[in-house]
């Protein structure tokens, strides 16, 4: 299984993500620069968290228009699995690979804490090692995580069962408590929580590791 992590200027979770992949999957991922021409052959592409281009204009807006994102979009359309974590999620919505947008938290506060999340469905590439409706504990660390979509888009997200996970309690103003969602084909996942920071019980929770295990499970079965 080939895993690639894309780093933009201002990305700061690339090494944590690489360590999580290595620890959980025993795979050393390739970390590439957004200035590279192409994404190498990958079974899973991860856009990690951080503050790409300093969150200038809007979080993720500049990164979403980098030339490498043309290649990412192509891979996504071909069915390659993609995860965007935190800023990666913002980049995917700015690129319109995922619906909606992430606004400033309704409290205007940067929120950094472990939160309880409910897994909405366990029949996807990313969640087979969880139970549907299971409550997990994974940290969030963001200022712009307040999920917004117009009513029609929100209805379509719910009708197509595209929600990946929800905050158990309202925390940042997100509509329907959405913390993460899939594209219609379920091969692209964006989420605000940081699963890569929850892969070792020594940090308080390892509930994030099963996202990576689910991916491996898919390739080994």
């Amino acid at each position: 299984m080939n895993v690639t992590i894309i780093r933009f200027p201002g990305t700061n979770c690339d090494l944590d993500t690489a360590n999580a992949v290595k620890k959980v999957l025993g795979i050393i991922p390739k970390i590439i620069s957004c200035k590279d021409d192409k994404i190498p052959k990958s079974d899973l592409i991860i856009i990690p968290g951080g503050f790409s281009y300093g969150d200038y204009l809007r979080s993720g807006a500049i990164a979403a228009r980098e030339p490498i994102m043309d290649d990412l979009e192509l891979r996504g359309n071909q069915g390659v699995y993609i995860i965007g974590i935190c800023n990666g999620f913002q980049i995917l919505t700015e690129r319109k690979l995922l619906p909606g947008s992430l606004l400033k938290n309704s409290s205007l506060k940067f929120i950094s804490k472990n939160v309880e999340l409910k897994i909405n469905r366990n029949d996807t590439f990313f969640t087979s090692k969880y139970q549907t409706d299971e409550v997990v504990n994974i940290p969030i660390a963001h200022h712009d995580g307040n999920f917004f979509a117009d009513q029609d888009t929100l209805n379509s997200i719910e009708d197509n069962n595209q929600v990946a996970l929800r905050y158990l309690n309202p925390i940042n103003g997100s509509l329907n408590n959405i913390a993460g969602l899939y594209n219609k084909n379920l091969n692209i996942l964006g989420l605000m929580p940081h699963p890569e920071r929850a892969v070792d019980i020594k940090t308080g929770t390892n509930d994030g590791s099963r996202i990576f295990e689910s991916a491996l499970n898919f390739y080994s079965t």
Binding site: A61, R65, S101, F148, A149
Partner: peptide, 9 residues
């Protein structure tokens, strides 16, 4: 439309 504004919001 392509960059300066996000017409979703």
């Amino acid at each position: 439309k392509s960059l300066l504004a996000n017409t979703v919001i």
